[in-house]
Every structure is written in structure tokens, then in C-alpha cells.
């Protein structure tokens, strides 16, 4: 199995990423929009359109098949106004939410399948990759890193690949780690779960839920780096495709 040099792979991924954007002619989609859109989809669209977007006859989001819309503007309008005479109701939501929903629906078409083998991908994920040391999937693995049980429903293939190859570039602010030092000098590190003006909550590296009053801390630092290693030199191109394909199958408990 030939290993692809990281710079070449990055160039390839960049090309894939850019092509994906150009292909749908919507430069304003962001992976983060897709994630927000997936949550909105579950709340607003899931009941009728189904988990795979193909429950309404004649409409299949994965296949990019629509009855009445073609452009994003059509879709935005249809979400806002509904389709008179059908079960599709007007959905009151703000403009950025509608845009996120469109981004997600478009991404369902873009990221429907991976090119690898999901079974091999799972074996690599749990074995050679050692991913469960930090991540959790359907109740198995560590809770310290982000849970990936529904990553296939909220991320595109390109984004998942980029997260594996260059995690430092794609770590989301919501997954940042925090390092606190108590007034007694004790150091605790963990993933930040919540924060307000006076307190901070985290899950520490022993998977314990911890809450601190900031007035009782010597320092607290939000870390902008990630402890996750890049896998560009650990997985071959084929292995990477297998892992991505496996992760794309993870759609949560729904």
C-alpha cells in the first residue's frame, strides 16, 4: 500500500473541497453551516422527509432530486413559505437558519456515500487508528473527545477527511480543551462543556464532569490546539477512504 505524501494529499483534498463548492455553485456553504443545518433538519424536516430525505415521493435529497425547486433561492423561499395545497408548511426561521438548512440538504447529495469499505473502516477506526482512545461511537470508547455517533449525519466526506488528516486545522471551537489551575495549584485539563461569566464546566481526562468557579481559579486557559495527531502518515489513501466511509455510516440512534 502506497502512502501519499501529506502535501500531495492536502492538495488533493483542497481540490476535492473546492470542486465540491464549485459543483454546487454556492461559495457560502461552510461545514459548520452543514452541522447547524443537520440539527434544524432533524427538528423541522425529518418527520416528513425522513432520515435520508427520500420519504416524500418524487423528492430525494441524497439523489439531488426535487419537485419544485432548483436554485438555493427557490429552496429558501419554499422553506419559508411552504407549498400551498400540500403538507409542506411554512417554516418560521431566521435567514441564517434557512441558509444552514439549505447547506445541509445540499450536503446530503454531496456526501451521500464514501468510496471505501465501511467494514474495513470500522476495523481501522477501532484498531490501527486507536480512535476509541479519545472518541466514542454508540457507547464504546472514551468520552473525552467529541462523540462521533452521528458524525455521518452532520459532516461531509470532505470535512471528515480533513479532520483526520489535519485535525489542528479543523477543530471546532465548541470542542476546545481548557486547562485550569486552582488556587491550590491543582491542574485540571478537559474538554470545555460550558462557560459563563463566573463558572466553567468541563469533562476532564478521567471522564469526570467538573465545575469550577472562576473566582477559585488561579488561571484558566482555553486551548486552541488539539491533542489529536494527524493521520496523514498513518493511513494510506485507501485506508483513509475506508475510515471516512465508515464514519459516514454513523447517523446516531435515530
Amino acid at each position: 500500500m502506497k502512502f501519499v505524501r501529506s502535501s500531495a494529499l492536502r492538495a488533493l483534498l483542497l481540490a476535492v473541497f473546492c470542486f465540491g463548492i464549485v459543483a454546487v455553485a454556492q461559495p457560502r456553504y461552510l461545514p459548520l453551516d452543514v452541522e447547524n443545518g443537520s440539527r434544524l433538519y432533524r427538528t423541522n424536516c425529518f418527520a416528513c422527509h425522513g432520515p435520508d430525505g427520500n420519504s416524500i415521493p418524487g423528492v430525494d435529497f441524497h439523489a439531488g432530486k426535487f419537485k419544485r425547486v432548483s436554485s438555493d433561492e427557490d429552496m429558501l423561499r419554499t422553506i419559508a413559505s411552504g407549498v400551498p395545497g400540500t403538507a409542506m408548511p411554512p417554516t418560521p426561521m431566521n435567514d441564517s437558519s434557512r441558509l444552514a438548512l439549505v447547506a445541509y440538504i445540499r450536503s446530503m447529495h454531496e456526501s451521500a456515500t464514501g468510496s471505501g469499505n465501511a467494514g474495513r473502516g470500522r476495523a481501522l477506526f477501532e484498531g490501527k487508528g486507536g480512535c476509541l482512545a479519545c472518541h466514542r461511537v454508540n457507547g464504546k470508547g472514551s468520552r473525552v473527545g467529541p462523540d462521533l455517533s452521528e458524525v455521518g449525519g452532520i459532516r461531509t466526506a470532505a470535512y471528515i477527511e480533513r479532520s483526520i488528516v489535519a485535525p489542528a486545522e479543523s477543530i471546532l471551537p465548541e470542542h476546545r480543551f481548557v486547562r485550569v489551575v486552582t488556587l491550590g495549584g491543582k491542574v485540571v485539563t478537559g474538554r470545555r462543556l460550558n462557560e459563563d461569566t463566573h463558572t466553567i464546566q468541563l469533562i476532564d481526562t478521567d471522564e469526570q464532569l467538573r465545575s469550577f468557579s472562576k473566582s477559585e481559579l488561579e488561571t484558566f486557559t482555553l486551548l486552541t490546539t488539539t491533542t489529536m495527531p494527524g493521520y496523514q502518515d498513518k493511513f494510506s489513501t485507501a485506508e483513509l477512504a475506508d475510515v471516512v466511509t465508515y464514519l459516514l455510516t454513523l447517523k446516531g440512534l435515530d
Binding site: L30, L32, D33, E35, N36, R77, A80, S81, D95, S96, R98, L99, A100, L172, P173, E174, R176, R192, L193, N194, E195, D196, L222
Partner: peptide, 26 residues
């Protein structure tokens, strides 16, 4: 008539940051 007439979409440059009961705002 009766439809939103806004001509755009303002978005947070860091979209997934949450505020509210769970705050990952920075």
C-alpha cells in the same frame, strides 16, 4: 407579500459556537 424580504443572510463567522444554556461562545 407576507414573505421575508431581507436580501441576505448575516452569519456568525464562527457558526457553531453556542450561546444560551450551553455556552461555547468565546
Amino acid at each position: 407579500e407576507g414573505q421575508r424580504y431581507t436580501g441576505g443572510a448575516p452569519r456568525s463567522p464562527v457558526p457553531t459556537l453556542q450561546r444560551g444554556p450551553i455556552n461555547t461562545w468565546t
